[in-house]
């Protein structure tokens, strides 16, 4: 965090120097509708000299500008230093109770790189579980669960910090509502994360997404023209490289038309905790554990056994066979004898 002394220091530094230190600082003025101060002017001088009528028009108060600027600088620093908070080594969820008040009796600790599957019918409490993690519940949600980060309850500020948001969700029914090309879109995200080399990161993400997607797309493809599979591939690549959230939830990835095993591996490689709502046998066997949801609570936690995993080869053969048939159909061929 910025100390008081530093605060005063950057308020009186000339803009040119501040811009060298933090190129993104220009956005502060831009987002408030103010012109960028000239190089030799300090924020302090700039705020003092701003026209009162202009401020009135913009809905800004002069007195609040210093505070806003300081807060913005804090935000920049937080994002740049990778939050300055200790890294997340583990997330622990302590059971509460289901909808009927029956205790859940579990204590689940997950670590980066783990894959946890979530199974159970619609309405069995999967969303509530995620909401508990998002909120870092402290016995104050309908389930009574508690969530610990690195074995400790969170500090109040952590619960609402956007740069500490715990869960990134890659849901099925996701759309792009922006009319941008893939490249512009990823660039915009990278800029908001203030990464050092925006162009390289953007190119990496687009390559990775193309590896995952069945059909290729270019950096110039509009995001709105991507197929469902391409969109999912792009979001998986994007989330693995750019999202600060340690947990990634993906649901029903089996329907996405992408290389689902590689997609999961991509996230695991980036040390994400992967939560996967799936009933696909191959994906389920990739999971280290399965959380079974029933009546708003977790009724069991099944550790994937070696005996279960022994089926994997068989399932993969079956899957490859079905894929081959699918491809044959796509190419207008007849289905031969596959037995």
């Amino acid at each position: 965090m910025t100390t008081n002394k530093e605060k005063i220091a950057f308020m009186s530094l000339p803009m040119a120097e501040l811009l060298l230190r933090a190129p993104f600082i220009g956005e502060f003025f831009d987002t408030l509708g103010l012109d960028l101060p000239l190089g030799e002017v300090s924020p302090e001088e700039y705020f003092t000299l701003l026209d009162g009528e202009l401020l009135e028009d913009l809905g800004l108060e002069r007195d609040s500008l210093t505070e806003r600027f300081t807060a913005f600088m804090g935000l920049l620093e937080n994002l740049k230093s990778g939050t300055g908070e200790p890294r997340i080594e583990s997330i622990t969820i302590q059971g509460g109770h289901d909808k009927s008040g029956r205790p859940e009796n579990f204590n689940l600790t997950v670590r980066p790189g783990e894959v946890i599957c979530i199974v159970g019918p619609t309405g069995s409490g999967k969303s509530r579980f995620l909401a508990d993690i998002e909120w870092i519940a402290q016995g104050d949600t309908p389930t009574g669960r508690r969530v610990l980060i690195n074995n400790n309850p969170p500090e109040a500020a952590q619960r609402f910090a956007i740069d500490h948001k715990l869960v990134a969700q890659l849901s099925q029914n996701m759309n792009f509502v922006m009319d941008l090309t893939v490249e512009e879109f990823i660039t915009m995200h990278a800029e908001s994360r203030m990464v050092e080399d925006v162009a390289t990161v953007t190119a990496t993400i687009i390559d990775l997404a193309n590896d995952l997607a069945g059909e290729k797309f270019t950096p110039q493809t509009p995001v709105t023209a991507l197929s469902g599979g391409q969109s999912r591939a792009l979001m998986i690549a994007d989330t693995s490289c750019l999202s600060s959230s340690p947990i990634v939830l993906i649901d029903e990835i089996e329907n996405a038309g992408i290389d689902r095993k590689r997609a999961v591996h991509t996230l695991v490689d980036k040390r994400k905790i992967v939560l996967m709502a799936t009933h696909d046998p191959i994906l389920a066997l990739m999971g280290d554990r399965r959380l079974v949801f029933k009546n708003g609570g977790i009724s069991a936690i099944i550790v994937t056994s070696d005996a279960e995993r022994a089926n994997l080869t068989l399932f993969e053969e079956m899957d490859a066979k079905l894929s081959a048939v699918r491809n044959a159909l796509r190419n207008g061929e007849r289905i031969g004898n596959t037995a």
């Binding site: 956007i162 948001k165 509502v177 922006m178 995200h189 908001s192 969109s231 979001m235 994007d238």
Partner: peptide
């Protein structure tokens, strides 16, 4: 729920 994760993150950041 109807926009992409990236858009959610950019929006919250803005």
């Amino acid at each position: 729920d109807i926009v992409s994760q990236a858009e959610r993150e950019v929006f919250a950041y803005r």
